[in-house]
């Protein structure tokens, strides 16, 4: 019985206190407070978890998704997928809405400025399935933006939403005149 109590107390320890590195094959990125973490979790719609606002299929890729970790019930927040391309993890997690998966990646964050570690998903596998890299963002983006995808360059240089914002507010967000002054100064260096 004492053993069961100790186990229960261990499971209740804060996320930061536990080590999930066993079996991880995550690549190191040299990030703040980074540590490898492989764990089983259920993919959940965070709005549904917190506020009971639960559309079908977790909002079909239009909501932030979380990983409800089996070992301790902690809701882990994934910010990033495996691609070094300014891409989040929703496209990788959305197909598994409500399902149990195993993920491998990095818990990230300097404890001094991050209230709880956030997560980078590098690979994912469904229950009884094979591992797959968490790199669906660009294919998903290309399917939604076929004309832009046909142009040369990385997605973030040709995304219509980004281009519209830069056309409106400039690269600095302060208007075209601020951009012109900055670019001239940089060229003059």
């Amino acid at each position: 019985m004492m053993r069961a109590v100790l186990l229960a107390a261990l499971l209740a320890l804060p996320a930061a206190a536990q080590d999930f590195s066993a079996g991880s094959e995550a690549a190191e990125w040299g990030l703040q407070g980074e540590r490898k973490a492989r764990f089983a979790a259920r993919v959940v719609d965070i709005l549904c978890q917190l506020a009971g606002d639960c559309p079908p299929d977790c909002g079909a890729g239009t909501r932030q998704l979380g990983l409800l970790r089996s070992a301790d019930g902690v809701l882990v927040l994934p910010l990033k997928n495996a691609q070094p391309l300014f891409s989040g993890a929703v496209a990788d997690l959305a197909p598994f809405c409500g399902q149990m998966v195993e993920v491998d990646g990095l818990l990230v964050g300097d404890p001094a400025m991050t209230p709880a570690p956030v997560y980078q998903v590098q690979r994912i596998r469904p229950a009884k399935g094979a591992w797959a890299p968490a790199n669906r963002f660009t294919a998903d983006w290309a399917a939604r933006n076929p004309e832009a995808a046909a142009l040369p360059g990385p997605w973030f240089r040709k995304d219509p939403r980004i281009l519209a914002e830069i056309a409106r507010g400039g690269y600095l967000g302060l208007g075209p005149e601020a951009d012109r002054a900055f670019i001239a100064a940089e060229r003059g260096r």
Partner: peptide
């Protein structure tokens, strides 16, 4: 801020919270 504005656009469009 303005130093990171373009990257903030990229990351927001990329679905990063």
């Amino acid at each position: 801020g303005s130093a990171h504005h373009t990257c903030a656009l990229w990351c927001a469009a990329g679905g990063i919270p």
